[in-house]
Design a protein around this nucleic acid. Structure first.
Lengths: 240, 240
DNA sequence: TTCATACTTCGATCGTAACCGAAGCATTGT
DNA sequence: ACAATGCTTCGGTTACGATCGAAGTATGAA
């Protein structure tokens, strides 16, 4: 009598809050360790371990051993697509976990997305990089152009060094506050690290928000201008 | 800290087997009563009632009172799309609830899919209708051609009458035993009713399988031949 | 080797929600 | 008015699984 694909099974896998948090975290495309995932799920590593085992058994996750770490990623593109469609559905009917609250402006403006910059500033940065031809948007993916490489070198980022890692240089990461893409990947990480090193910005203790210094903010905005001057700067409207 | 759409909630809603069964049952597009849904879910009406209330609260289902019945349907097209994408995902990795069992041949051959014909014969019928130009496959959807209308009239189905209903004439319904499409919609329903009235086939009591009489089967196969003679009839291979 | 880190497995607890029997409404039919 | 049907609500049981502490395995560093 029972027939058809077992949607209950994968529903149940996604249905647990801890697992859902881990999966959403992995939507960024970055491989994360069990410990990191435990943190985003708000559970201990033991619990996370069993969750991860289940997700792997359900073929939602893939695991890659590397030294004493185990990196987990979404099993394949299909999983990402699936999660995206569920997120879209959930967002469409206001099933939001986190309605825009009072403390949010800072987070909307600039925050950490695992290791790169997200929020309004993150979106602005990627837009600007694409507009000035430093990054090429090819299909779904992103790639650093030759011109972009030299531009990054001026800032103090050697793209050649980053290439040695297995991690992709650029990835597009969907920003749920802005509903637009920002830059992930090793270049995204390097850029954020660069800002932090230069003292343009600093992370805050308990939160994921990134606070720019007055001077740093000025330099950042100058470095990543809004090339498309077709509308009054949305970045600045948030800035106030 | 938590951010983004709440995929856990809808995952949990779909994650319960009883609820998943009810939802898949409703994918046929037909509105079903609480009692019917309890049956497909394999639970009592009381339990079904609480499940249905939850699904409604989660905006997955809509309810329509009519006399002393309450008809449940998927809340909107988005829900159908969502479920389809999950089913596709699950099927793609072999997460099937029901591996081909011993009693299945009859079901694979011909069965009720809510109100229309599914299984090998259902697939064959649609293929044949398309091949002979009675139905046009336009994009994702299906449409009856002018020629198809007259052909159906010969069998005793007035497409004009069906048009008065709000229900779409033709819908493609994915067949999970065949992994191919068969014909749903009011035309699909009318065809099955037609076969039953003529005594070509009959429904069985407890099951969803449809049993053809020897004569009815002959006529059905003659009416819906396999136009593409590129392989030996798959219908007959199951028939044995 | 020994220690430290990263992760898994085991064992046990605890909460939640799925479930059903029984009773309570609501609608229809007689 | 009364009975019958369809469904919901209530109450109480039960089972599953999420969780964590503690112990066990693997990898790397000193």
């Amino acid at each position: 009598m029972k027939e058809g694909p077992d949607i209950a099974q994968i529903g149940a896998l996604i249905g647990d809050p801890a697992r859902a948090n881990m999966l959403t975290a992995l939507m960024g495309g970055k491989a994360l360790t069990a410990t990191e995932l435990a943190a985003v799920g708000g559970i201990t590593v033991q619990t996370a371990s069993t969750h991860l085992a289940k997700l792997e058994a359900g073929q939602l996750l893939a695991q890659r051993k590397q030294g004493r770490h185990r990196y987990f990623t979404l099993a394949d593109d299909g999983v990402g697509k699936l999660l995206e469609s569920i997120m879209g559905f959930a967002a469409g009917r206001g099933h939001l976990r986190h309605r825009p609250g009072p403390k949010e402006p800072a987070l909307r403006k600039a925050r950490i997305c695992y290791d790169h910059l997200a929020g309004d500033y993150g979106v602005r940065m990627l837009d600007s990089l694409i507009a000035k031809g430093a990054i090429d948007a090819v299909g779904d993916g992103l790639a650093v152009t030759r011109q972009g490489e030299s531009a990054l070198k001026c800032i103090g980022i050697d793209v050649g060094d980053l290439k040695s890692s297995r991690r992709p240089l650029c990835r597009s990461c969907l920003d749920w506050s802005e509903r637009r893409a920002h830059l992930a990947g090793s270049v995204g990480k390097a850029l954020l690290s660069n800002f932090l090193e230069k003292g343009w910005a600093r992370r805050t203790a308990g939160s994921r928000s990134v606070i720019f210094s007055p001077d740093g903010e000025r330099q950042f905005l100058a470095l990543f201008p809004l090339h498309q001057a077709d509308r009054s700067s949305p970045a600045q409207s948030v800035e106030t």
